[in-house]
């Protein structure tokens, strides 16, 4: 019985553990809990260590680790959960707030006044299918092809989900910024 060789400590730290922040961050966005995120990140790293021979050298190790994380998350939590957000994905009317921020407040004010926690809270409130692609793309910088492989969906699905996720989040952040008094509401909106 010959086992494929495990990576040495230096190699594993350099190739995999260097992405622990990304794995933990993503786990936090998926699970919504720091304790579960630690647990998921740890299990992901253990699985990566054991499955190291399956990692193709030269490919994006971060994308590989985030895929392991996603599968771990699904196996652990989603099995028992309903996914009600599946139904309304196409109902969401996407549109940019670009036109709204033109007149009342400069666009820069909108971006400058929102802090990390407010943005993260808005991301966490997105439907799971949207949150997932947005985090993989806009927080972790994966390509459309890497995201498609990770969530096992066609690139076209990634594109349309990402579009909707970005516009939906933008709209939420805009409404929040108006409510918090960070920016002025455009005058001609009711």
């Amino acid at each position: 019985m010959s086992q494929p060789p495990s990576p040495d400590r230096e190699g594993f730290e350099r190739e995999a553990l260097v992405h622990l922040d990304a794995v933990y961050r993503t786990a936090l966005r998926l699970s919504g809990s720091p304790m579960e995120a630690e647990d998921l990140a740890q299990e992901t790293m253990f699985k990566a260590f054991r499955g190291w021979h399956q990692y193709e050298a030269g490919t994006n190790a971060k994308a590989w680790l985030l895929t392991i994380l996603r599968n771990t998350f699904i196996n652990r939590y989603r099995r028992t959960k309903q996914r009600p957000e599946m139904v309304d994905i196409t109902e969401i009317e996407p549109y940019t707030v670009f036109h709204d921020v033109q007149d009342a407040s400069p666009a820069q004010t909108f971006f400058d006044r929102l802090v990390d926690d407010e943005v993260l809270r808005a991301i966490d409130a997105l439907p799971e299918d949207f949150r997932e692609v947005l985090v993989l793309s806009d927080v972790e910088g994966l390509t459309y092809a890497e995201i498609a492989a990770s969530i096992e969906a066609p690139v076209g699905t990634v594109k349309s989900r990402l579009f909707r996720a970005r516009q939906l989040l933008q709209r939420e952040l805009y409404d929040y910024a108006v409510e918090a008094g960070y920016i002025e509401q455009r005058r001609d909106r009711p």
Partner: peptide, 14 residues
């Protein structure tokens, strides 16, 4: 907007 998202979401580490 996309640069803003990245800047506001990557500070958190393990």
């Amino acid at each position: 907007y996309l640069r803003f998202l990245e800047a506001r979401t990557r500070a958190q580490g393990a």
